[in-house]
């Protein structure tokens, strides 16, 4: 098992799927000749040529719709939207066409596109380049939403998404492309549904996804060493559908829950997980669950303000201590 970077894992999944099936294509801004803003498509243009590795104009709704239309006829497009902030412009085609066409055609037509995009706050990118959008995508019927927290998931989820008969949105993070991790040498397909226990524990469950899984893991480390609290970390790599059974199972074990997300409240991923806890296992709880999330502000530019907006592992630790009456 080799240790590779997150972007390399995504690139490998592209390469393998494109080598296997001539109808798999990829498209997006700067993905071809320039090799991709985050290198996720590096070398593919040289290998597969401009008809299959399409440098698109800066027309997010247009090229996303074009990918959807191509998928009607069996082409399998992997569409990169450079930043999730621009995905708003493609929302008409994702929301109105890709997600709904199977239903409104009575199952006759499907749009099995893969849309990948990088969201999240990086380093002082300001209000229009720092957004999280997963909470919007996960509320759309007919769309699968996954969000890899490590290179293995980034590779295996993209592989599975390409093979899926449903449209899949893959939520990546701008700060994670250079993260290293082990990826199996052999071909690997990660399930599109479910959740993973990233660290086993007994006293509290920390729910995270994508980057917040790492806050939770770091917080669990601190909680174990400094406070003798055994935290379980559940990685919700699938945001739609959410793994209700997995959420219930862990809460039933630890009886306490903290939900960490980079998205802002209200109406965040955390709200939905809290609702699921209420619906599935309210009587298992020893204390009200706590949410950790961003402040409801357009992302500020100033370094100190940005830091104050976005939570991190320290906020997760604080939330747990509050839950245990230690803060």
């Amino acid at each position: 098992m080799a240790e590779i970077m997150y972007w390399e894992a995504i690139q490998r999944a592209h390469d393998e799927e494109m080598a296997r099936d001539p109808l798999v294509i990829c498209m997006g801004e700067d993905i071809g000749v320039a090799g991709g803003t985050y290198k996720a498509t590096k070398g593919l243009y040289e290998k597969y040529g401009p008809l299959r590795v399409m440098d698109t104009p800066i027309s997010e709704n247009g090229y996303t719709g074009l990918g959807v239309g191509a998928s009607f006829l069996g082409v399998k497009p992997i569409i990169e939207i450079m930043s999730v902030n621009f995905a708003w412009l493609a929302m008409d085609q994702i929301f109105n066409s890709a997600a709904k066409v199977r239903y409104m055609s009575g199952g006759q037509l499907t749009a099995p596109v893969v849309v990948r995009s990088a969201g999240g706050a990086a380093h002082q990118l300001g209000a229009q380049h720092s957004a999280r959008m997963e909470k919007v995508f996960m509320g759309i019927a007919g769309l699968r939403v996954v969000t890899p927290s490590n290179p293995k998931q980034a590779y295996g989820l993209l592989k599975s998404a390409v093979r899926s008969p449903d449209p899949v949105y893959i939520n990546e993070h701008e700060l994670m492309y250079n993260m290293k991790g082990e990826v199996p040498d052999e071909e690997y397909f990660h399930p599109l549904e479910g959740s993973e226990v990233a660290r086993s524990g007994t006293d509290v469950t920390l729910f995270g996804y994508n980057i917040s899984v790492h806050w939770c893991l770091k917080a669990a480390e601190i909680l174990a060493k400094q406070y003798n609290i055994s935290a379980e970390v559940v990685d919700l790599y699938s945001l739609s559908p959410l793994d209700r059974a997995g959420i219930k199972k862990s809460v039933a074990k630890t009886h306490k829950a903290v939900i960490a997300e980079e998205d802002e409240a209200p109406v965040g991923v955390g709200s939905e997980i809290m609702a699921i806890i209420n619906e599935e296992c309210f009587w298992e709880l020893d204390a009200p669950p706590v949410r950790v999330h961003s402040a409801l502000v357009p992302q500020p530019y100033a370094h100190n303000l940005e830091k104050a907006t976005i939570p991190d592992h320290e906020d997760v630790v604080k939330a747990v201590l509050k839950l245990f009456g230690k803060a």
Binding site: L66, G69, G74, D92, N96
Partner: peptide, 25 residues
């Protein structure tokens, strides 16, 4: 007949995408 769509202008890129698929196939 690949459908009727209710967002004005929505089918434009879908049609171009079908043409892309035809071109590839």
């Amino acid at each position: 007949f690949m459908g009727g769509y209710a967002l004005v202008g929505g089918p434009f890129p879908l049609a171009a995408g079908m043409a892309k698929a035809i071109q590839m196939k």
